[in-house]
């Protein structure tokens, strides 16, 4: 395994020192099969301990390390450096307030999730065993349950940037996930919530969310089906 020289330009913001974010370039050596997270670790562990970023599972499932690399929203842990060559430009997700360096404030993101009642609502009596759900019924929601709440979609969404009230793709996808779950009885409540100018109708089918999703979830398609359901329901 060969070592390669990397120039990593990172958007830095230390709230106790900096008035506004600024770029800092680190010239470092890493193994040629390194990921973006390996690069950040190398800098943090051996060059500048003040660098802040989120990470945990380093296997693409926890959703901690979504950030923007060379203009694209990615999970740092699963993205190989060679995808971008030797010049990296790393910055926090757009559309969120920066807490420090690559760490953004996700409280608004999680607050939006809560607004769509993100849990199964069951009015009927519970069965003794499991609800019967056919593989075809499961298929309706299967892919949407892959969402890891990394916020890469919301940060890529031009409709979300200027409008903090917009529920955004992740929360709407979660709404889809429950509305289309054969076991759920809460569709009416949720459809009422998303039938709003800051709900599904703020989605302008730009497809950025889909391109940004590290789990390759067809978010725009599901949001379109959710829109259709809203219309059907109000007829």
């Amino acid at each position: 395994m060969a070592q390669i020289d990397i120039q990593a330009k990172i958007l830095r913001y230390q709230p106790e020192k900096d008035e506004k974010p600024h770029w800092q370039t680190f010239a470092i050596q890493v193994a040629d099969d390194s990921t973006i997270l390996d690069v950040l670790n190398e800098i943090h562990w051996r060059h500048d301990g003040t660098l802040a970023y989120r990470r945990s599972c380093r296997s693409s499932i926890c959703g901690s390390c979504a950030m923007k690399v060379n203009g694209r929203n990615v999970l740092a842990c699963e993205t190989p450096v060679h995808r971008f060559g030797t010049k990296l430009k790393v910055e926090p997700l757009s559309g969120f307030q920066i807490i420090k360096d690559l760490v953004v404030d996700l409280e608004p993101f999680f607050a939006k999730l809560k607004r769509i009642k993100p849990y199964l609502i069951v009015d009927k009596p519970l069965p003794d065993k499991e609800f019967v759900q056919s593989p075809a019924q499961l298929e309706q929601i299967g892919e949407s349950t892959l969402c890891i709440l990394c916020a890469a979609c919301s940060a890529a969404c031009p409709s979300s940037w200027p409008n903090q009230e917009y529920l955004g793709p992740a929360a709407l996808l979660k709404a889809y996930r429950f509305v289309f779950d054969s076991r759920d009885d809460g569709a009416d409540q949720r459809l009422e919530i998303v039938n709003d100018k800051n709900g599904v109708w703020r989605c302008h089918t730009i497809f950025n969310c889909m391109e940004a999703c590290p789990k390759k979830i067809k978010i725009t398609e599901y949001l379109s089906r959710l829109k259709l359901k809203v219309v059907e329901n109000s007829l």
């Binding site: 230390q14 709230p15 106790e16 020192k17 943090h44 301990g49 003040t50 660098l51 802040a52 970023y53 807490i99 420090k100 360096d101 760490v103």
Partner: peptide
């Protein structure tokens, strides 16, 4: 890092 905020 001697800062208070997100001191990894």
């Amino acid at each position: 890092d001697r800062g208070q905020a997100f001191n990894l």
